[in-house]
Amino acid sequence: MTTDPTTAAEAVAVRGLVKAFGRRRALDGLDLHVREGEVHGFLGPNGAGKSTTIRVLLGLLRADAGEARVLGADPWRDAVALHHHLAYVPGEVDLWPNLTGGEAIDLLGRLRGGLDPRRRADLVERFELDPGVRVRAYSKGNRQKVALVAALAADVRLLVLDEPTSGLDPLMEAEFQRCVREAAAQGRTVLLSSHILAEVEALCERVTIIRAGRAVRSGTLDELRGLTRTAVVVSLRDPDGALAALRAAPGVHDPGHVDGHLRLDVDAEALDDVLALLPRFGVRGVTAHPPTLEDLFLREYGEPVGSPR
């Protein structure tokens, strides 16, 4: 294998990935780059291709075209060697119904080549899991905890988590976030697919947003925010005059009255000019906040596919 120096530090390197199921193209030229040691958020609406991508990265599906490298290895050809170094938690966890949770954790650990007993005990306690219960009697959330404990206790370089917290309560969600931070502090790489934007915002340094099998945005959260608009709410002495002026100003979107205030979205590059324009109308108060991930997300999906960025 030739090691490309630019990708050597990439835990996951995907270029132009295509995967079709019959006539439906689940992945349509997807790019995804995850650096070693980072927590990478993987976002997209239902059916965007997140789970398909992850299954390709695990060697469970074979890509029709494009290139995928995980820890420098081909995920289909080198699956077994690669799987010594990664652990996976699916969104819908189904395990052996007549084994106990503890047995399932140990078994998954043994398949991965052993797990750290102290870390296992610690995680079982932190996730408040009763390991003596049979899997068939667990709720969805508890089955997910079983898979999480097994994955987090494994001594691996890469954690692949596909909506791992969809069944967890807020306390367990917080515990999960602590665990991911610890894993990151130990130098592990985490690929986190999630619908819980607050979780991604709290954990991830970089984010890839996909839609219809293609990456539409990728970068740090700051970079993504810089690409979009800031929401500004101002309280003015002459709101009607301001509204007329703002409508004419470049880089201002959807200005309007909300609860006696004026609300508008401003492009990053126009922010300076717009703020300079406002004092004429007597500013009494102003709040501005950068777009949340939710704003980014809604904006990406509000636009039709293929619209210019």
Binding site: A8, G37, G72, V80, A81, D155, Q186, G187
Partner: peptide
């Protein structure tokens, strides 16, 4: 921490053998 030491080491395809298909 072994994970850190291993951070830049790609998974060597040299680990890959024909018996991999039966591993586990």
């Amino acid at each position: 921490m072994t994970a850190v030491a291993a951070a830049t080491r790609p998974v060597a395809p040299a680990d890959r053998r024909a018996v991999d298909r039966w591993a586990g």
